[in-house]
Design a protein around this nucleic acid. Sequence first.
DNA 1: AAGACGGGGTT
DNA 2: AACCCAGTCTT
Length: 305
Amino acid sequence: MLQQTQVAAVVPYYNRWLRRFPTIRSLARATESDVLHAWQGLGYYARARNLHRCSKLIDEKFGGIFPSDPNELKSLPGIGRYTANAIAAFAFDQPLPLVEANTGRVLARLFNVRDPIDSSSGRRKLWESSAKLVCSKPARDFQNAMMDLGSLICIVRNPRCQICPVRKFCRVRDPASLPRKRKRAAIVPLIESHRLCTIGDALLLEQCYQRWRGMWILPRLELDGLKPSSLSPRPIHTSVFPFTNHRVTLRVYRQRAHHVDPRVQRWFRKEELNAIPIPSPHRRAINAFFTSKRAAESHRKRSLE
DNA sequence: AAGACGGGGTT
DNA sequence: AACCCAGTCTT
């Protein structure tokens, strides 16, 4: 959960997750839909699918025992060099190098790594630096201290060098100038149109196969790129959300259900929507629709009285 | 080596 | 509006 996601955002998900899947086996036995539902809103859903696959592998191939060898850990889906070493270091107290956002920033400054830390040369130098520092005695404590140093003192902006315990070893001149990062890809605007169809209190949704795979969204409408003219119907909902290097404008049109494809589309009653995985922008659009509908109904009721 | 992959919070 | 985040996988 913590991969590319801040601790504060993870905490409530983590607590709910452990209540819902208390053991590796209970996760292994869950459906992918339930797993994605528990993850919805956190983003990077491949992490949830990987963790699910991971639990099945551990349940079936590792006798339910989590491996402690970093190489075995790295062979599991979603566990790369950082996570493998982090599990081995924190759970099993093994002296291994760790480079993530916090320790990466600390190491870049300590060793004055001027290459972008997300370039291959920068990454290589950081891992080499980390390997130089790991000591075997308090392996777990050392890495905890490195991460705390990064999150509390050697912070992104306005690093608190005055109170830094390792200040005299630090080789960087201007700490705020490091770490550097590669220039990021330009933001590409995107317009996506979807339809909102209801029958009674049931809503038509469509299964995703690419982005948000395994989750449910409002059915796609193939008029992307077309400018809304005065002739076309107005969207009942418009929102803008960032998606990796895109800026997506989401337009939702009220429509009758003419083309229902039973292979990928399904009707859900309003209450059922709470139990299926829906990505945040679509969940917000759906909520906005039901909220305005309820408001309209109560207004009509008041007028009748 | 670069791009894809989320979403919410902070500056 | 840009940047940030306990990275990993695919191309």
